[in-house]
Design a protein around this nucleic acid. Structure first.
Lengths: 197, 197, 197, 197
DNA sequence: AATGAATGAGTATTCATTCAT
DNA sequence: GATGAATGAATACTCATTCAT
């Protein structure tokens, strides 16, 4: 019955992500998690070493999923521009459908310490590098905007989502993704059609 | 001797902003602040009601300064586009020269509660509204990107700065401001020479 | 298959004695014992009622063996003096060859409570009484040193062993026993030969 | 009012020594100490870093006092034999008048860890060395009993006191000291009249 | 204007033990 | 016979805050 164990752990992680997203990692007590998960206080320690392993596991799983998803999303692109667009679309829609975990990933980046922190930072570096490559290719020889600045600006646009976006609101995740992709490509300047001309 | 009082309070606020930026609001203890400020633990309570008033005051002063500065920066603009550009330039350079307070403002938005939280949220709304108006004017009748989305995307680009930007690094605050302004206006697309025409 | 049961229990007791000796009874957790014995946490409860029964059984078995051994060792003596000497020799060599259990016996005398404590205390009283009788006989009508004081001093000399003696070191258990026997009989005063004269 | 602070700390240490002696270090909870000392649970942390600093301080102060006292006691001796006798007398009477602390010193030797443990071990080594020197001098060229064995046997005799001796009982500390001194010097053998000659 | 001393409520974590399987 | 999963009670320690001085 290994399944039961995994299910319980998943449930715990899901509950924790939800509470961390709402109250923040440091303000969340193990009692909060006990209440939310329905497990006893000490029972949680059967599944997890401590509060920080909970945060780590949430971040690690989420980041790994993002990276894997991005790679597969991007693989279908035909042009550099399309690759970038697919990357953005994937990131934004993933974010919108995993708001809680992604908020925890974005907001609690400094809440871990030690080796666990480093492991997450490694994943982050990998993901940043991925976008950086695409940005460079799209920019080609053009100057004016540094690739790092552009990449981090894009991440900022996308990760800031957790502070204002409501997936149940009028803007669908897909629409949001489109708009951010367009914004990053052409800016607020009206209709990019003229560009092609 | 009112000056002495103000000086001591300013010193305390400055110390607190620095520690909050480094360790986060919840992880910071009053003892940390006592150590950093050089004041005694109980001595701090002469200047401040408690830990949350400290956070509130830092955020309130910082936000007010940002808003005042933005208004005055923008007042010199001749065109909508220039207004927007000046707004961005001001926000970014202010951020770069007040990294600690701005990190506290961006990262600890949810750490306050009650009336104090509402007061800060009011300032935030005011500031958002300010940008929203400019974005709408610049976009004019154009469609494709919702003004709210554009405004929050821009804030994301700018506020994310605290996670990666090093004011002592190669990119000067001014250069950074220019690049973000250009990115928001025209995207990563190689400089839109054709547009000017 | 009763043998298998006994073997497993003996193994558990042996493991427990070893860990108790090293970390002390109270600092030892059932998990430590599970690890050391290779048995599962709950599996140990099939053999033993709980942690304190483990301590009790170790002490009870060890004390019984000491008493039985002492009785048989002493039975061969021809003179009171020899009885005493054989008692000491037995105690010391037994100690040296069962360091772990004897440390647990000496050091954890107060770690038990209730009826179990009383039962061990009874054994202790029996053993003390045994020595006391020998001391009285040897001392005969002499005064100066109270028999109780002498007996407890001797126990102190012998039981303190666990704090410093290394059975693998230069001093063999036999040599140690001889020296303690001589010390108790004649003191550090050089060569007891002159006494006989 | 530095005195008040010191008094309170002394009171706490005294209370702790008493409870440690009765229940053992590990079985003693901070609540026990709070109850015994009359201080609040958190209030104790104003005086002490934690439970182990409490144990350390008790042991350190007690050991230092023993060593200082021994040195001064021994300084008046005219012969090696007298030195040894005075050492024993001092140790035993000190023990009898500080039963609680001395029990904590003797019984909880392994309850500390890290640098604190080492510091206490250093004191112990110093004290052992002191006795060892005296034993060697008294033994002179005599053989038969190894000086280390003799010294540790003596410590055993003396330190075992805490397991059986009642200072309020019939045997006064002085009488006890005399008997142990005599026992160590001449053994249980009827008083060595011939020796004096 | 400043602080040493004190504390109630809370915090993560541990532990011996149990019980369904 | 044996164990994975679970838990109530306890444990050392922390923290924002207070108050007499």
């Amino acid at each position: 019955m290994k399944l039961k164990y995994d299910d319980r752990l998943d449930h715990l992680l899901q509950s924790a992500a939800s509470v961390f997203a709402t109250k923040g990692y440091h303000s969340t007590t193990m009692r909060d998690l006990s209440r939310e998960s329905g497990m006893s206080l000490s029972g949680m320690y059967y599944y997890v070493e401590g509060k920080d392993e909970l945060l780590f596991t949430i971040q690690e799983r989420c980041f790994s999923a993002v990276i894997t998803g991005a790679r597969s999303a991007v693989s279908l692109a035909l042009t550099p521009r399309e690759r970038l667009e697919l990357f953005i679309r994937h990131h934004v829609t993933f974010f919108a459908s995993h708001m809680e975990e992604m908020k925890v990933l974005s907001h609690e980046a400094e809440s871990l310490a030690g080796p666990r922190r480093e492991q997450i930072d490694d994943l982050k570096r990998e993901y940043v590098e991925m976008l950086l490559g695409m940005v460079r290719t799209v920019q080609d020889g053009s100057i004016g905007i540094n690739a790092h600045v552009a990449a981090y600006a894009l991440f900022g646009m996308m990760n800031w989502i957790y502070t204002w976006y409501d997936p149940e609101g009028p803007e669908t995740p897909d629409a949001l993704a489109n708009q951010l992709a367009q914004l990053f490509a052409y800016g607020i300047t009206p209709t990019p059609v003229t560009h092609g001309g």
